[in-house]
Design a protein around this nucleic acid. Structure first.
Lengths: 336, 336
DNA sequence: CTGAAAGCGCTTACAG
DNA sequence: CTGAAAGCGCTTACAG
């Protein structure tokens, strides 16, 4: 492979009457260089179309300035297993925006069963400087290993009890509390609940929260039905509420289940919210488009993604970083 | 900044009784090194936990081995303007998978009005080696400039008539033709159409295709309503069909409009498909969950993403690359 | 404030 | 088949 040295930096230097070092310093914004010199060099660089190599900079600094966003993803027999796309996109957009502001970029890493070693290798090879984990399930043991090898990472929307891993999460309580206060105001007293199962930390949290708030507010929980966060499980849940007096409101642990439930109710001519109020959680984009528009709790996914990126960058820089929860809030629309 | 040379490569070398050059060659899979030597070096490298620096390799080769996936994205006053998330995710997953197989990675670049110069700078600085453009609108003038500066890129789902830009697209005709054949079989003769407006190349294509196929099959087009690919526009379209005899089927230029239309029809107690058949285009994940499940045309987004990545990589390597269309196909469910 | 020089960790042409 | 050596384009400690 023949290689000609990039002559540009040297060219800029001689055109500006300075050394290549000075060009680098000026373009990197070093405080040592006087403004006048900087401006002159910048002008000449622009004229020559000279752009410094990020790769050389990365190489020298041994930092890739890249964040790895890890999402569970697998295809088997044409079936895709992945995090819901709206969730993924919003967190990603947030992360990309915040990363960009800090001159980092975001690389998507699909996780079809990567080992802790595979992941560590990405960092050792300087493919990325650290990880943001999305959509983790309870019981993932890779985090311990990564942590013990001092690989920087932050967990989004999940955490491991008793472990010092950095996590960024939605504070579900703030929104749920608003919802309960709203219920009280509307004289809602008897509740049904459609839970999200045991597989997701999120789901488990929301179930716990629902129970404790119901108790705190002195509401009666008439019925709690098992779901799994899917639209289908919401649809199936309908039968558990039909053929008996309705509670005043049915709280669904996420929007997708609420969509399924409402759909099934409509087919049975149940009027919402007249016969029974229904609420969701997540504030998915479609919530506003359905009839009735869904009353739900907003999950600040974009901000979560941005915050996760910021925390990861701080962690990469060796700073102390604490976990954080971002408040959720009630969005009242038509269904409750 | 104090710097200690990574001693590992030298360590591996001496442990294996060879030179550092040989270690590099062995680990890079050079055909010059005998298998036995390779295996020995690999074993020792593993024991020492040595991982070669991708960054050094990239730097030397002046290639980042990264693909930039460019998506329109902006936030103004809390409102997000972005490509639909399911679309984005699927294409992205496809691209990431194909890139990974070629040892490339994918970086997401949010485009809130980047100039051709901004984009070129990403390549000159070796942040990425080329671009995949998603969700482009008609009339984007940056492509000409990038092309003239020999920046490698491929267009997904759009193209510029008369320009030699590489594009990867869905061949809508194959699926539409299947749909029309299915209609003929079901004695459908009179059609309505809900078009997707003029802003998207996709929408324009589907409109053109619909007309020419209707003519070819000798169907009557009773009514063509203007939409804009949004669910809301689908809902609004309902009024144009109510209060007059229905066509045998209404073809919607995408699923989202079909969802809106069906929703509005259900509210008016229009039975689908008994009173009127409704079809979509895209085969979004929810199509299967709605009642009635949507008959639609599958858009192979995952494969499109994978193919776009492959083509871009070939282009980056300097090979000649042609545009390509992937066939779509009819998915018959309940709504038609 | 500025320049000359060392060095980041690879790959590869060259010589054996 | 293998080693010594040059070089990729930056950053920065060092000396002025």
């Amino acid at each position: 492979m023949k290689k000609k040295a990039t002559i540009s930096r040297r060219e800029i230097a001689s055109a500006a009457g300075v050394s290549p070092s000075t060009v680098s310093r000026a373009l990197a914004g070093s405080p040592l260089i006087p403004e006048a010199t900087k401006r002159k060099i910048e002008r000449i660089a622009k004229r020559f179309g000279y752009v410094p190599s990020d790769l050389a900079r990365s190489f020298y600094q041994k930092k890739s300035f890249r964040l790895g966003l890890v999402i569970p993803f697998s295809m088997s027999e044409g079936r895709v297993r992945a995090v819901p796309s709206e969730y993924f996109s919003k967190v990603l957009y947030g992360a990309v925006g915040a990363a960009k502001a800090a001159r980092y970029s975001v690389t998507v890493i699909t996780d079809d069963g990567l080992s802790a070693r595979d992941l560590e290798r990405e960092v050792l090879s300087h493919a990325v400087d650290g990880f943001i984990f999305l959509g983790g399930r309870i019981g993932d043991t890779r985090y311990d290993e990564l942590h013990s090898r001092t690989v920087p990472f932050v967990l989004v929307h999940h955490y491991v009890p008793g472990k010092p891993f950095i996590s960024v999460d939605t504070d579900s309580e703030s929104g749920m509390r608003e919802l309960f206060a709203y219920f009280r105001e509307k004289s809602v007293r008897v509740l049904g609940f459609l839970n999200g199962g045991e597989s997701f930390v999120n789901a488990v949290d929301r179930t716990r929260l629902f129970s404790s708030l119901a108790e705190e507010f002195g509401f009666t929980v008439m019925r709690s039905v098992d779901g799994d966060f899917s639209r289908t499980s919401g649809r199936n849940a309908a039968s558990h509420f039909l053929g008996a007096p309705f509670p005043d409101a049915i709280v669904c642990a996420n929007d997708r289940m609420a969509f399924g439930l409402i759909e099934a109710f409509k087919r049975e001519n149940v009027a919402i919210p007249a016969d029974v109020r229904v609420t969701g959680f997540d504030n998915q984009d479609v919530s506003t488009l359905l009839t009735p528009a869904l009353t739900t709790i907003d999950n600040p996914l974009y901000d979560i993604g941005a915050l996760a990126a910021k925390k990861l960058i701080h962690r990469i820089r060796g700073e102390e970083v604490a976990s954080e929860q971002l408040p959720s809030r009630l969005i009242v629309r038509e269904s409750a």
